[in-house]
Amino acid sequence: MTPPVRIAQLSCGPDYSGVQNEINTAAKEVNGEIFFPDIALKDIRRDFDAFGLDVKSPDLKLAIARAKALVDGRVDADAVFIATCFRCAEAAIVRNELRRYIHENSKLPVVSYSFTERTTAGTLLTRMEALTTIARRRALLAREEQQGITLGVDSGSSTTKAVVMKDNQIIGTGWTPTTEVMKSAHDVIDNALKEAGITMKEVEAIGTTGYGRFLIGKELNANLIQEELTVNSKGAVYLADRQHGPATVIDIGGMDNKAIAVMDGIPGTFTMGGICAGASGRFLEMTSKRLGVDITELGPLAMKGMGGRV
Results as ranks from 00 to 15, higher is better:
Ala8Pro: 02
Ser11Cys: 15
Cys12Thr: 12
Pro14Ile: 01
Asp15Gln: 12
Ser17Trp: 13
Gly18Lys: 08
Asn21His: 13
Asn21Glu: 15
Glu22Pro: 01
Val30Pro: 02
Gly32Asp: 05
Phe36Gln: 11
Ile39Tyr: 07
Ala40Val: 11
Lys42Pro: 04
Phe48Arg: 12
Phe48His: 14
Gly52Ile: 11
Val55Asp: 04
Val55Leu: 03
Val55Lys: 05
Lys56Trp: 11
Ser57Thr: 14
Pro58Asp: 07
Asp59Glu: 14
Ala67Phe: 08
Ala67Tyr: 06
Ala69His: 14
Leu70Asp: 01
Asp72Ala: 15
Gly73Thr: 11
Val75Lys: 09
Asp76Gly: 03
Ala83Lys: 03
Ala91Gly: 15
Ala92Asn: 15
Ile93His: 13
Asn96Asp: 12
Glu97Lys: 13
Arg100Asn: 12
Arg100Tyr: 05
Ile102Arg: 02
Ser114Phe: 15
Glu117Asn: 12
Arg118Gly: 08
Arg118Trp: 11
Arg118Ala: 12
Thr123Phe: 08
Thr123Val: 10
Arg127Asn: 13
Arg127Trp: 09
Glu129Arg: 15
Glu129Asn: 15
Ala130Thr: 15
Ala130Cys: 14
Leu131Met: 10
Ala139Phe: 09
Glu145Pro: 04
Thr150Glu: 05
Thr150His: 04
Leu151Val: 04
Gly152Met: 03
Asp154Ile: 03
Ser158Lys: 05
Ser158Arg: 09
Thr159Tyr: 12
Thr159Phe: 13
Asp167Gln: 00
Asn168Arg: 02
Ile171Gly: 02
Gly174Asp: 05
Gly174Tyr: 02
Trp175His: 15
Thr176His: 04
Thr179Phe: 07
Val181Glu: 07
Lys183Ala: 10
Val188His: 04
Lys194Asp: 12
Lys194Ser: 11
Glu195Trp: 00
Ala196Lys: 00
Ala196Ile: 02
Ala196Phe: 03
Met200Val: 06
Lys201His: 08
Ile206Thr: 06
Thr208Trp: 08
Gly210Phe: 01
Arg213Gln: 09
Arg213His: 01
Phe214Val: 12
Lys218Trp: 08
Glu219His: 14
Leu220Ser: 03
Asn221Leu: 06
Val231Arg: 00
Val231Ala: 13
Val237Asp: 02
Gly245Phe: 11
Ala247Gly: 03
Ala247Tyr: 05
Ala247Leu: 05
Ala247His: 02
Ala247Asn: 01
Val249Glu: 01
Asp251Val: 06
Asp251Gln: 05
Gly253Leu: 08
Gly253Pro: 03
Met255Gln: 14
Asn257Pro: 00
Met263Gln: 14
Pro267Phe: 07
Thr269Gln: 07
Thr271Pro: 00
Thr271Glu: 13
Met272Val: 14
Gly273Gln: 11
Gly278Asn: 10
Gly278Asp: 09
Leu284Ile: 06
Leu284Lys: 07
Leu284His: 09
Ser288Pro: 04
Gly292Ile: 06
Gly292His: 07
Thr296His: 09
Glu297Thr: 05
Pro300Tyr: 00
Pro300Arg: 00
Met306Glu: 10
Gly307Met: 05
Arg309Gly: 06
